[in-house]
Design a protein around this nucleic acid. Sequence first.
DNA 1: GTAGTATTTGGACACTTGACCAAGTCGATC
DNA 2: GATCGACTTGGTCAAGTGTCCAAATACTAC
Lengths: 205, 205
Amino acid sequence: MATTSASRGQETRQRLLDAAVALVPELGWGGVTTRLVAERAGVAPGVVHYHFASVTDLLVAAGTGFSGALLDQLAKELTARPTVGEGVDWLLGELSRYSGADPASLLVMEMFLASTRLPELRERLGEQIAGFRSCVASWLAERGYQGDAAVAAAALAAALDGVMLHRALDPDLDPAALAGPLRAMFGTTREGTTTEGTTSERTQP
Amino acid sequence: MATTSASRGQETRQRLLDAAVALVPELGWGGVTTRLVAERAGVAPGVVHYHFASVTDLLVAAGTGFSGALLDQLAKELTARPTVGEGVDWLLGELSRYSGADPASLLVMEMFLASTRLPELRERLGEQIAGFRSCVASWLAERGYQGDAAVAAAALAAALDGVMLHRALDPDLDPAALAGPLRAMFGTTREGTTTEGTTSERTQP
DNA sequence: GTAGTATTTGGACACTTGACCAAGTCGATC
DNA sequence: GATCGACTTGGTCAAGTGTCCAAATACTAC
């Protein structure tokens, strides 16, 4: 058995982080309490303050851990796309996995808001997003995007998050249907795969 | 004096709503308490439950009141713009008033999230946004937008909210700098006022 | 075995919360 | 003046909160 004392502790710590990640979307950032997180993790309430200085500390660690992994993987897969057009299409496809009301989307949004009240979270999250944007920008530049790649990356990233935001209130909003206007942002109708016709898809019946 | 008993009550009610609107951005939706709202409004704690059934009721009324007025005015002013290009530029200019970390932006985002847990709020907010989008769509259609106006309106509205979201974490993100890609969404470089050169403004130094 | 360390337990502490209410105030109406 | 209804007060209540801690447990090193 490799169940050393330390490794058991690490596992408990991870269970607390996972429980927090699951609880924030359900109850909101401010709705997560010591006892609830402990109960969800299957440990005694006191454990929380053994592994973390405060509930806020736990939430920050859990949130940044989640968003960091998410953005890293997103950036990694995006930069593997050969053309800008394919990349945008892939991003939109990926986005359809996030309804705006699913746990992942809600957690990220809760973090956005909590960061306005928690300087430490704000700094960490800001770094992660800046990293993602610069990654997208260099990917755009390498694909021969004409114009300011940083601006375009910012606009694309913002539009993606905005779509997620709106989908939370309008489930019928199909991300794929927005491919037309978004791809037009990069003038990609001539290069890459030309998927004409998607523009005419309806969002609302 | 027109200070009838009823009108005084209405004024107190309004003060509670105003206090709630101010408090939600500061403390988050879940951080607003009976006593804090009463103190900010300058009334006794008990007054809250005389005018509203619960704290949640107060927050929903305050939030929807605010967002309704905001969207109404936005739609009204937008539809007064003669061309699509001017409209987009005006919207971006308007957006620069909302830093993403200002009270108005934060309140709207808090409402977005709270609505996932409060069906009543969700329904009301959804109606308001759908109304705004359809208003933008018909404005686009009237200006001779070629393509699905509803899709374009959805993309534009989402992009705007996304920019607001990102500005909360990156104050250097200049909405006006994004005019290039956004206007490209509607292919408005040929019609309307052509403000070339804005595309090259930097977002990050 | 024993000593020592890391982890976990369950409860205690002082405090805040939403909701509620009897008593009080105030202006309008008779 | 007296009466009435709308409104306001300041406080109580049970329930829940974050934080802390002495004691119990589980594992490691000797």
